[in-house]
Design a protein around this nucleic acid. Structure first.
Lengths: 139, 139
DNA sequence: GCTTGACCTGGAGCGCGCTCCAGGTTCTAC
DNA sequence: GTAGAACCTGGAGCGCGCTCCAGGTCAAGC
């Protein structure tokens, strides 16, 4: 017997922490930190207390990674994870959170595009400076 | 006499730190920190040692704010400011920095769009869950 | 049985980008 | 001249998101 977890339907593939590190790109420490922080529910253990991640754990981690990738804070992810752990009744609240976050993200992307445009202008400016080195207009 | 600075051409408008706070949205502390960090050259002072920002200082600050807004680190901004302070000969290096940063920014924006798309999918998923509450597919 | 490497825990530490604080000086209005 | 607001400096502190460390336990191969 290798797994300290119930096996819901047939055989459940489980992964060691190092395998999850490989698949997610997160570090060992970050995985343990996420669990401690409650971002993921306590992962199953072997009888020897070593973590074994189920496929569902991995899928959830991958979603968390995307949330992080859109700039969601750990605190908000904790709140989201807590709602999720409370079951289907919290779907409206979760949806509201994601929509708010999505709107925020859209704002940040707009700002990013504006700033990128200013950066492009500056690049153009320098390119022109190099082409005709007479004007030493320092700004 | 109010300004401890030379006045290059005609009257140079100068601003107190609080006026710059208003115009830039940066805090007093951040402005002083940026100066201490070498992001802006030492700002002119009154005889009483109070800062007076020239129009050029403000323009440079606004550019720095845009660089920050595209995710450039303080360390890189220090490097850029140092190049700028060394004069026109460093224009090629500055251009290279900005181009590299621009490419990096493009990568990050692409990643952001991918993650935003995943977020949209999840939102759709939750909306469908709410419309037909039979399937309690928790992922 | 023994070695070696993977894994465990609790807690300290770190890099970043500010932000705050104490204690003092300067400016403005009256 | 005086009160009160604005400003100065050096340095400590903070919130975030990890990252590292010490001191162990566990697992796999020989």
């Amino acid at each position: 017997m290798t797994s300290g977890q119930p096996l819901p339907g047939g055989q459940e593939p489980t992964l060691t922490i190092s395998e999850v590190v490989e698949r997610t790109g997160l570090s060992h420490d970050t995985l343990r930190y996420y669990e401690k922080a409650g971002l993921i529910e306590r992962v199953g253990r072997t009888t020897g207390n070593q973590r074994r991640y189920a496929a569902a754990d991995l899928a959830w981690l991958e979603f968390l990674i995307r949330l992080r990738g859109t700039g969601m804070s750990i605190a908000d992810m904790q709140r989201f994870a807590e709602l999720r752990s409370r079951g289907g009744a919290t779907v409206p609240e979760r949806l509201a959170m994601l929509r708010a976050h999505r709107a925020d993200l859209a704002d940040r992307m707009r700002a990013l595009r504006r700033n990128a445009a200013a950066l492009d202008d500056k690049i153009d400016h320098y390119e022109r400076l190099l082409d005709q080195p007479g004007t030493d207009d320092e700004t």
